[in-house]
Write a protein that binds this DNA or RNA. Structure first.
Lengths: 206, 206
DNA sequence: TATGCTTCAACAAACGTTCGTTGCCGGTTG
DNA sequence: CAACCGGCAACGAACGTTTGTTGAAGCATA
């Protein structure tokens, strides 16, 4: 979705190949593993095989790097949610697709995640706003999935906001413990939570 | 639960009164708000009205301070969970009490909390273990609440671990957005999630 | 030659922590 | 009651290290 430094410009300069995307990927991984403040520019540089000073050819500052990652992460997640539910009309199937998208995106690449509230506070108040706005949009998108089911008379949602938070909470939690070599695959986890989260909002349909 | 510097020994030394407990409280608040690495010893000192160097009269190191807070937080949570469910025999009531304890403890004082995995990684591998062991014990305690209901034939739990994680996920999420002056009180939130989380594990009881 | 990325040294600031010192306290001694 | 002592806590400066960031010099490509 976000293409940086694409095209045929390759291998300029003397040393290694240090694309901006490689830096972003390394930073995401390290931020996720250790946290933003516990990761130094020298750590990131070492991870892509260069020096700290070189990173500044590809980005403005460390905080900008985080801001970009947060924005991309949440906007990708929002896009994935919309893609997954696009054209699906049946409320239950729509809900299942949504839960699947939420979980799948957490598990796919951005393993332990930078996301959400975890590192948001590392941003200066002004820069936070853009990310917070995206997050609100994301929550609203989930809310509309619920609304759709309610309008059709299929769901019974007694508190919209608390229900949204439950979905997000499960999603974040899954991102924390999931390991690719674990007992369960993404498919099984997704299916389980689809059923699990559907239960409280579908009145007595067995 | 933890009594430090109690007794009649008061106002020794020259300047202000800086009890070890006050330091812990300030540190907990700051760690919760900004994160461990984003909080300096000077920040903590300023919060209790003293100087960074003085803090070392009350503690070993910054990491020890975090370790103590994490241990206390999770062991308090475990104790609260056990207290709340002690003597309650009916599986549903037992489950309701458990959810209530989980949420209530998150909301009561340790607002956004240092919690679980968030700051655990700030500890050296060796020191982590004690906290991880406590966390496992906590998860196991939740698991036994579920077992109890299953044995009585009241609950149907298709995956024990995933169910536990769902409860914890909701609990953590609640700790993130809850504000005491918000739309809903603790009572209402707790009641909502009791019903919500009960639904997926109680087969068709309307 | 011109351009773009590298390297490397250096910067000031902030970090956790240590230290010598000073003042206050409760308890012991006269 | 008065004089002293040992210990605790606060103070404030300083420590060595690490932080994010900058800039000059060098090399490779076009």
């Amino acid at each position: 979705m976000v293409a940086v430094n694409s095209g045929p410009h390759r291998r300029r300069g003397r040393g290694r190949v240090t694309s901006a995307e490689a830096v972003r990927a390394a930073a995401l991984r390290l931020f996720a593993e250790r946290g933003y403040h516990a990761t130094s520019m020298r750590d990131i540089a070492a991870a892509v095989g260069t020096h700290a000073g070189s990173l500044y050819n590809h980005m403005e500052s460390k905080e900008d790097l985080l801001l970009g990652l947060l924005r991309e992460s949440i906007s990708d997640r929002l896009a994935a949610l919309r893609d997954a539910t696009k054209g699906v009309d049946d409320p239950v199937q729509r809900f299942r697709a949504a839960v699947d998208a939420i979980l799948r995106h957490r598990l796919a690449e951005h393993r332990e995640i930078v996301v959400g509230q975890s590192e948001l506070r590392a941003l200066q108040p002004g820069r936070r706003d853009a990310v917070v706005a995206l997050r609100d949009e994301y929550e609203e998108a989930i809310g509309r999935i619920l609304d759709h089911g309610v309008e059709r008379g299929v769901f019974r949602v007694s508190d919209r906001k608390l229900t949204i938070y439950a979905l997000i909470g499960v999603g974040q939690q899954v991102g924390r413990w999931y390991r690719p070599d674990g007992r369960l695959g993404i498919e099984q986890i997704s299916r389980f939570y689809q059923d699990f989260l559907l239960a409280p909002i579908t009145p007595a349909v067995s």
